[in-house]
Design a protein around this nucleic acid. Structure first.
Lengths: 351, 351
DNA sequence: TTGTGTTTTTGGAACGTTCCAATAAAGATC
DNA sequence: GATCTTTATTGGAACGTTCCAAAAACACAA
């Protein structure tokens, strides 16, 4: 019943005006008389009219579908969920609607969802790319004039805007903190060497070590999966060294948790006999035992900024690429063995 | 540049056929000759054709937009993120694309996003409704013949399909477990009384108590916000009773964590001097100290089932409402003070 | 050859909107 | 009263696809 769609001409007929006038009302044009506008809107409400954006889109250049595509590589990871929420906030309040897809770090899936989004005529795309994403994956988008913002991870060679956290700075700060606590043998654990994020963090580690006049020892750089299992593995290898470290900075919090497990398995108590610092400040970092000292990035704020950046590009029309580096901060908790101090206040918005 | 869109007639011209033939190829019709199909697809690839679903949609009845709307009330909550991922899995592999929005428990926002989704012509909607959602909010959808599945929370009076976890059963199992451990004074903490979920869980609590010949004491039912703060508050009130409980089942894990805080503040060690059971099995439950005994529901599985249910309704055409109750299971960890036993194996898919 | 059946292909006419150029109505100015 | 502005309104032509009825092309038997 009532399955028949009510269109703009139905409204026009019922209100005694032309469809053009109704269209004008729809887009809030100042050309239409107030009385007419009132009548038309009344009729629209009465008949239960719903706007057909697809049809509108067809006629218009197609660029303004009011849809923003958001692609994340792992939605079950709280970090990316927060990111998506941040994007959603600003995107919604700008009258857009978010099209969110999860790729589970799968390149084929990512290609599919991006293609699907194109078919639906997104006005812009924010993507936290799956590992191994190439510039060529984003090429068609930019060729079609669709603004793209990559977040969290860079895509080398892609001529698109980006927002990433300050990986170098984060590791730098972590290492200096450990040095200040008296550590000399500091390892860098976890992460894949073939990623840009890894290399940036590694560089931060190296620069900090060098800046503190510590002899760099490449044996202390132990790559492994950026996961709990990887952390467990990495710390095991670190402890097996002839001259083992007394502290470690980890690629991310998951690695740090795995390292905790590994330390305990070796009879070492993290935060007491060994100092550990993570990266990300995931939600569990605060409540874990010991509470994890880590580099905090504000994922929701990052999402908001990514969205703002994208909207700016959409309205500007010209896709001038811009690169943002979101600042991070060290949150000192227990795992680094520092004397307990009150936790620093809630993060101001990054940047 | 190349900013000009390549359409089906461009393909037709280049391939030396009519646009109708190209359309046939597009929808994989068996009517078209293999040689022709090959030629057309080749040309499509060559010219970089992208399908315009909006246009297609316009001509078709509009019901098959291949978009599924997903609305959750709190995406930052791991439970709902997992739910969305579950939905995404089956929705994607069925060739649909997911439109995900977050309402942050805000009814106005929820109205907005649902309206926006309608404008885009979704084929179906899965919604984990914000608190206070009325049947009238979903009425227009079902009137328009759009299949709707509500998940996690019921919407009283709405004639739509639903999938919720077995709240009664979960609480029932939790209480019986505590009784088996020797507890007699068992409280029920947290949650808002005006929600259906609360009432179902409460009924499970009551039935279990009654089934164990324990005198029901309404003073032990302490409602409070379904949050950490609410849990802290509730346990405080519980301990202040003349005859305080020795154990508690909580409305959800957040309440349970708050109760832990409250117990410690009162010098009582949860899991040792007081038994606590949560509900949800959020990700932190496993790693908290003490590890939280809780009722586990498989949110991802729930999302998958919700999606399957919706897709069934979409293809069936007739929106015959169906109600699914997903089974839950008790996961015994440390907070209930039980003797440590190996954790039960990974959850089989609910139901 | 014609007839009959099967397989392929094809022009329009929709779908619901926006845009454009043009018109109508109403005031303002001479 | 005629002309010019300003303000509101309007019909048709798009947009890129699918659907329909019908035509063309082909195959084979009579």
């Amino acid at each position: 019943m009532g399955n028949v769609r009510v269109t703009v001409v139905d409204i026009a007929k019922a209100a005694g005006v032309s469809k053009s006038t109704v269209s004008l009302v729809l887009q809030g044009s100042p050309l239409v008389n107030e009385a007419t506008r009132a009548k038309v809107t009344a009729v629209m409400r009465e008949l239960g009219y719903v706007y057909n954006r697809g049809a509108a889109n067809l006629r218009q250049s197609g660029a303004n579908s009011k849809i923003i595509g958001v692609v994340v590589n792992d939605l079950t990871n709280g970090f990316f969920a927060e990111l998506a929420v941040g994007v959603d906030m600003v995107v919604q309040s700008a009258g857009f609607v978010q099209f969110l897809a999860n790729t589970s770090e799968n390149l084929d899936r990512q290609r599919e969802v991006i293609a699907s989004m194109r078919e639906h005529g997104i006005s812009g795309l924010i993507v936290s790319p799956a590992r191994g994403t190439k510039a060529s994956d984003l090429k068609p988008l930019v060729a079609a004039g669709i603004p793209v913002v990559v977040a969290v991870r860079q895509v080398p060679g892609a001529k698109v805007s980006s927002i990433v956290s300050d990986n170098h700075d984060g590791l730098f700060a972590a290492v200096r903190h450990l040095v200040a606590l008296g550590h000399r043998r500091i390892a860098f654990l976890g992460g894949f060497r073939d990623t840009a994020v890894f290399m940036e963090r590694l560089q931060g580690y190296r620069d900090a070590m060098a800046g503190c006049d510590l002899t760099p020892d490449e044996a202390l750089v132990i790559d492994a999966g950026p996961s709990r299992a990887g952390g467990f593995d990495a710390i095991g290898r670190a402890l097996a060294l002839a001259d083992p470290p007394t502290a470690a900075v980890c690629f991310n919090d998951a690695v740090a948790f795995g390292a905790c497990d590994g330390l305990r398995a070796a009879g070492i108590e993290p935060g007491k006999n060994f100092a550990l610092i993570g990266f990300d400040d995931v939600i569990e970092a605060k409540t874990a035992v010991p509470a994890l000292t880590t580099i905090s990035v504000d994922p929701q704020g990052m999402g908001r900024r990514a969205a703002q950046l994208l909207l700016k590009q959409i309205s500007a029309g010209k896709p001038e690429a811009e690169a943002i580096v979101a600042s991070v901060r060290l949150v000192v908790r227990e795992s680094c063995g520092a004397p307990a101090r009150p936790e620093t206040a809630q993060a101001p918005q990054a940047g």
